[in-house]
Design a protein around this nucleic acid. Structure first.
Lengths: 155, 155
DNA sequence: TAAATTAAGGTCAGAAAAGGTCAAAAATGA
DNA sequence: TCATTTTTGACCTTTTCTGACCTTAATTTA
């Protein structure tokens, strides 16, 4: 139990409990835990990804940093993970209709939002068909739903 | 955060918050921040370019100056259509950063929304590069922004 | 007035300072 | 055992910063 990754995760969570967003320096954090810098990336990838409700943003070069932002997914905490599981790499028109219907039923989306997502994606898919369309649809739907489901309570 | 470039950017933005256009002297600004003059050019190129909504005009020789002008985002009645025009068929990472920056400036998006959009799209683009990435980025960004922008009109 | 001088700003390549990627090795646990 | 997770390190990319050298415009001087 409690590998180094767990300890780093715990440390970052403590920081994030006090602020919605924190900024770290990869090198410095790595020194602090006496590990190689890429270990920090591993922790970020496995513990602070979008499924778990975190956004990671970074900048290289002098004055570089890594910013971790906690997202408020309050109403449906595991929605992002489930969406990715459900949508996967390809998604047909019928599957999308079914999913949007269910999301409206579950009151995750309003009917207007579902209609909007449908029409915007439809528009974007004009001229594309077959497997290519299914791949593109999966990507577009993921982006649309993740964007919509972000409850922005801040500011 | 806060590299020297960030500090210079911050200083100039404060000036530009009070006036639509400002004039600076490269040498004097460089002395003020204890850096080499070309550092000022770097800040102008990376932070005050056209994508971010600024125009830079300069004159050499005695009495030379650099003028930075903020281009105001006209509150266009039909933002969605406008976005489609701006984004077009391909959109680079740099262009996206600039557009998101401007949308936050114009208070069309909150900072969190911009971070979310960028992060989700970045996630979706892993493994894709070059022209293919620019095409896909344009599509994803359109869907994300149109989805967000229409949200206000529903219910 | 033409040339020389001075006073700006511009360009570009390279060094420095971050963070990123990926695959292999090591550890873990079912 | 053997599949999964963690850890490591070699190598890569991006961003910032610096300095040498270039161009342009105004001013001074012959």
């Amino acid at each position: 139990m409690s590998s180094l990754s767990d300890l780093i995760e715990q440390y970052l969570r403590e920081q994030l409990a006090r602020a919605e967003s924190i900024e770290i320096q990869r090198r410095q954090l790595a020194r602090m835990f006496r590990c190689v810098p890429s270990q920090i990336n591993y922790v970020l990838e496995t513990r602070f990804n979008i499924h778990r409700g975190y956004l990671v943003h970074s900048r290289r070069g002098g004055g570089g940093f890594i910013r971790i932002t906690r997202i408020n997914w309050e109403p449906h905490p595991d929605l992002p993970r489930r969406l990715e599981e459900i949508i996967g790499g390809e998604f047909s028109q019928e599957e999308m209709d079914g999913l949007l219907y269910r999301l409206v039923e579950a009151e995750v989306l309003s009917e207007n939002e579902a209609i909007l997502v449908e029409s915007v994606i439809q528009q974007e898919l004009t001229g594309v068909s077959g497997k290519e369309a299914d791949i593109l649809r999966a990507r577009l739907l993921r982006v649309a739903l993740l964007t919509l489901c972000h409850q922005d309570y801040s500011d």
